[in-house]
């Protein structure tokens, strides 16, 4: 099961990576938008995409597709993080690390939840690209999301490293 989820994860990463490259033609990727500290930067990024033609549309259309695909990506990476944490819980003898891996299940869920909220904010901004005062800044949500995701991955990596060293 983990292998299947991981394969889907890689395919989506590849597609989203390609979309990211396209967006960077305007000088900004989707991460730049998520982590734009102030509203002015965020609005500027949206307007750059809006003003950059791509095919019969603009780069903003690619950004919209990217966010739509991100909903599926959320399901996949949350499932993957949970599956990895759960699987590692069955190998981790240290109680505190085992408890942290269990905590990872919650972290993965919260990360996904924050990502959904962030996507909703970004989609709102897409719909109001020409109305500067309607901008919702996703910076705080994105920062919390990345923080939780990093913590989650760190716990996993630490447990893997510990298992590897004890195996040797």
């Amino acid at each position: 099961m983990k292998k299947v989820i991981f394969a889907i994860f890689l395919v989506i990463v590849f597609i989203m990576g390609y979309q990211g490259k396209l967006l960077e033609r305007a000088g900004f990727g989707i991460i730049n938008l998520e982590l734009a500290k102030d509203g002015a930067t965020g609005k500027n990024i949206l307007q750059q995409w809006h003003g950059s033609p791509y095919g019969d549309g603009t780069l903003l259309d690619i950004a919209k597709q990217n966010v739509q695909l991100d909903y599926f990506f959320i399901v996949v990476y949350v499932s993957l993080l949970m599956a990895l944490a759960n699987s590692q819980m069955q190998r981790e003898k240290s109680v505190w690390l085992n408890n942290l891996l269990r905590f990872n299940l919650l972290l993965a869920f919260l990360t996904g939840l924050l990502d959904v909220i962030e996507n909703i904010m970004i989609q709102h901004n897409f719909h109001h690209v020409l109305t500067a005062e309607a901008y919702w800044n996703p910076y705080g949500v994105a920062l919390a999301k990345f923080g939780l995701a990093a913590l989650s991955v760190l716990v996993l990596l630490f447990s893997y490293l510990k298992s590897f060293l004890s195996f040797k």
Partner: peptide
């Protein structure tokens, strides 16, 4: 899923 039971250990 949630708990590491006796047999897990």
């Amino acid at each position: 899923i949630l708990l590491s039971d006796v047999i897990d250990w």
